[in-house]
Design a protein around this nucleic acid. Structure first.
Lengths: 215, 215
DNA sequence: GTCTGAACTGATAGAAGCGTCAGTCCTGAC
DNA sequence: GTCAGGACTGACGCTTCTATCAGTTCAGAC
């Protein structure tokens, strides 16, 4: 009788055991995300993390082997949410150049509406730009599309991706140290479009288009 | 008699007491730089750091209050060395666009010749781009010169600086995960020049010029 | 209602790091 | 040669964290 105990009575599949387990795991991840965003460090004790997740200390070891495992999962969780958020807002845009411009500007707006995700992106995002999961594939896909359509001009898509991603995170870094004026996102988007090969006037036009709202 | 004990008999000023003290401090910083470059972490114990610096455990507290103080000093030390290195190699170049291109390409070469500095720049450089000491002022100065001479076109020099710096560190991040071909530095330099407002053909020409050698 | 097994819990023992401090070494003054 | 003061040293007491594990709670089967 090990299997087939799904008397699924909830929306998110699986039985109540599994849902409780998933909830506990998510509570630990949420606590780790908070701590990461607040302190930028992973030095909090497991006791403290468990307490913040409102979970017993020993429970931690039911879900993760080490503290690093948890923080890795937390970063992945936050960046996946970030990627899906941007995807959903920009899915109606066809022009790859406009997609990039919108993503840059929206990321800067995210700093106000989703400070936790923004902090994690700023502090831990860089190594994930080139990763095979999460943000990496999305950015690469959009660059390839733009190049294939002749809109972008660059030699190596991997180099282009690290340049775009690094520039974006650099802007977040700047934004965390001083208040940027409202047009900073547009300026950055314009520079990134120029970097990808668009003529200056065209880059300016696209970077200043009206922007869809975040949910 | 607290002062005036300089019977300076060495090259680097000060008396032997002070030179010994400086040597010990530098040994601690060098150990911290090594550890940072090797592990990317600051979690090594003070015992371990002192052992690697070949000084007694208690000596640590003669020079630094906390482990973080030491690592901060170590990062500053490495990035200052990086800045001076690039300055010395590019000091003969007049065109600010050529200076930027050379710095980008040299930074990538530094990954082979100075792996320790490169690692620290990659792992800890981002927050220093906007700092008031070290790398920050140099980059800002060069951007302002380029803009004043009409060679660069951008709205906000701070935004431009974070974009350039972030892109460069993004490239280092990429370089740490896979072997880049020899032209990657040129491609990145070309993109950065375009980002700063140079026409595409001109950017290409400058980014492929012969490069001065590192010492 | 009773039983089964999985998840949760927190007390505890063992390990490890930190900061101190009393003592030693070294440099320069006289 | 002797002395003073600063730098260096590492053993020690204290604190903190970790990982385990025996017991408890809870959901679902019958």
């Amino acid at each position: 009788m090990p299997n087939q105990l799904d008397t699924t009575d909830g929306p998110a599949g699986a039985n109540r055991f599994e849902r409780r387990r998933a909830r506990t795991r998510q509570a630990l991840i949420a606590a780790a995300r908070q701590i990461l965003a607040e302190t930028g460090e992973t030095s909090a004790s497991i006791q403290e993390i468990a307490a913040r997740a409102d979970v017993g200390f020993g429970t931690f070891y039911n879900h993760f082997e080490t503290k690093n495992d948890l923080f890795d999962a937390a970063v992945g969780d936050a960046l996946e949410e970030y990627g899906q958020l941007l995807d959903s807002v920009t899915e109606g845009i066809d022009d790859p150049a406009a997609v990039f411009a919108a993503r840059v500007r929206l990321t800067l707006r995210l700093a106000a509406s989703h400070p936790e995700i923004t902090q994690i992106l700023r502090l831990r995002g860089l190594p994930h730009i080139n990763a095979a999961t999460g943000l990496g594939p999305r950015a690469l896909r959009d660059l390839e599309i733009g190049k294939a359509s002749g809109r972008f001009t660059f030699e190596d898509p991997l180099v282009a991706r690290s340049a775009v991603g690094g520039a974006l995170i650099g802007l977040l870094q700047l934004n965390s140290t001083r208040d940027l004026d409202a047009e900073a996102g547009e300026h950055m988007a314009e520079m990134i479009l120029r970097m990808l090969g668009l003529p200056a006037d065209e880059a300016h036009g696209i970077a200043t288009r009206p922007l869809p709202d975040l949910p």
